[in-house]
Amino acid sequence: MIEVQGVTFFYPGTREPALENISLTIRPGEFLAITGPNGSGKSTLARLLNGLLRPGKGRVLVDGLDTADAASLVEIRRRVGMVFQDPDNQLVAATVEDDVAFGPENLGLPPAAVRQRVAAALEAVELADLKTRPPHRLSGGQKQRLALAGVLAMEPVYLVLDEATAMLDPVGREEVLKKVLALRREKGLAVILITHFMEEAALAERMLVLNEGRIILSGPPADVLQQEEGLAKAGLKAPAIVALGKSLRQAGVKLPASIVTVEEMARALWKLASGK
């Protein structure tokens, strides 16, 4: 469990807090989406979860370990893996397999164990065939899957994706997201997805909307995405499917408000049509 307790955070030299009095609990295995406009504090929150940033006020506990305790940081970072936005800035080695090895090497694992974890992680993200390739010769989606493998090789409990799909094309985005969700199913990983694509956030069990450093909406996507006003305050819009659902309901079509994805909508409409 990750517990964020009353956290306020200021960047050095600023007077406005980047985050103000945030409290939040993330359960193991949970799928949480965090959205909000640029500058709302999403990325700051992400960096507090693995101790890249320490709270000015309040505490962040990862399975009981305090991120303010320097002695726990290696274990915290092993548990909370993070994939960043820019694929090029997070790949550190000149080949795919050496990059995956970086984390386990930092954990001080013996060479044989490192090799085993690298092989397993590359298998999991389906990049085993490309293990000797230099990262700059991969596609965007492949690069992000590689970054994912680098995190998996540390056998994390929580996976934080900080706008990890923002720079990808739709196919690359789907490729990465599918992989992440499959890993969650197989390994029971908790996924914390930071995104400003509402379609992606809609897939989560729970979503948060941040604006100006505060949580302004929180709950299951089906509820949060109905709150047009709140979303608009954060410069966000409900996904097209949610908007369509609302519009159809207003026209008297009996659709449940919980529909957020294309597949759910197609199924519900089909049921309605064939029910007649």
Partner: peptide, 8 residues
């Protein structure tokens, strides 16, 4: 528009 938030 790549990488921008919805308002951007």
């Amino acid at each position: 528009t790549a990488g921008l938030d919805p308002a951007g």
